Amino acid sequence: MDKIAVLIPCYNEALTVQKVVTDFRRALPEAVIYVYDNNSTDRTAELAAAAGAVVRHEYQQGKGNVIRRMFREVDAAAYILVDGDDTYPAEAAPRMVRAVTEHQADMVVGDRLSSTYYTQNKRPFHNFGNDLVRFCTNRLFGGRIKDIMTGYRAFSYRFVKTYPVLSHGFEIETEMTIHALHRNMQVENVVIDYRDRPAGSESKLNTYTDGFKVLRTIARLYKDYRPFGFFSILAAVLATVSVVFFVPVLGEYFATGLVPRFPTLIVCACGMVAALLLFIAGVILSSLLTKDDRDFEFRLQQVEQWQHQSESAPSGGRQRGNQHETV
């Protein structure tokens, strides 16, 4: 098991990856730097290896797929996850690692939005999207996360080995944040300086397409992690619409003793039945989620036992021996 693992997912980052690897080797000399190349068509893998990183490959396109591979393959007491575009300062990494190793944090968020992000980032819709995602996530899941979409984070071993990666693309940051909030894991915010990409380096994030994916992910995870609230809202909407259309029919019945609009009455009755079914579904799923939460706590205990066993086992020199390996 590595003491510290720096995980760098990369796709066509030849312009910056060498500097990123060099900076993190200087900031964290005891760490193993892993660069996972995601089908780059430039010299990203070659330059990363030349800078001293362990280079591996993920052939399924998408940042979520890369992070899934990283979390499965790398064992470490503390992890740093950072983009390979040289927008995040390596100098903040020791502080983030200490939050994991000394303060027992499960996830440390590199907070760009409280420092230089709004002045450095030249894409106004990205700024609006970050604020919208932060508001929705914290409001729906009861968090106080300062930066939801940041690509600079630190993790504990137990977070990495219990986090089910379901997303394929850039919505992965939102998913891991919501996972940490739902599982009551310790999350800390560390303010970092952000710098925009250097000239010639292009963002892989599409403001509109990936933004809608992120919002859809929030809605999906709200359904999964807050089923009672989600289905209660749907039930309330259906019940309200049914009552609104039923009131005139009821008033006409009291006035004349007749029900001339039977189709409306039937639709209202079906709407109320559907609302009741949705409410019951929310109650049942909420009960199942409670059982899942209990099972998760047992899995956490197992992961902590694995970590203790791995840390007590002889290292065999793996940490430095494979630092120039290219898979």
Rank of each mutant, 00 (worst) to 15 (best):
V273K: 15
G321Y: 10
Y118V: 00
V244A: 14
L205I: 13
M149A: 07
L300W: 04
D111A: 01
D295N: 13
A92R: 02
R123N: 07
N130D: 11
E325Y: 10
C268A: 14
F135T: 09
S287L: 12
D292N: 10
S312I: 01
S167C: 05
P248A: 09
V55T: 05
S242K: 10
V187S: 07
S201L: 00
D86F: 05
D2T: 01
K122F: 00
A78P: 01
A274W: 01
G62A: 07
D42N: 05
P198C: 08
V66Y: 12
P227K: 13
V259A: 11
P164R: 15
I67C: 03
A77P: 01
P314V: 10
Q307Y: 11
P164S: 13
D224C: 06
L289F: 05
E202S: 06
G282R: 12
N206W: 08
V160T: 09
V267Y: 14
R139G: 00
P9R: 11
Q301A: 12
L113G: 01
R68S: 11
M149D: 06
P94E: 02
R226A: 05
Q120E: 13
H182L: 09
L258E: 10
N65D: 02
A76T: 05
F230S: 10
H126V: 07
I8N: 04
I280W: 13
F71I: 03
T137H: 03
A154C: 04
R25A: 00
M96S: 03
V241S: 07
L289C: 01
R26P: 00
I266R: 15
Q18N: 06
D196G: 14
V303K: 14
G321T: 11
V133P: 00
Y79G: 12
I145R: 14
G271H: 10
D131K: 03
I172H: 12
T44A: 02
A78Q: 10
Q60R: 15
F141I: 05
D86C: 00
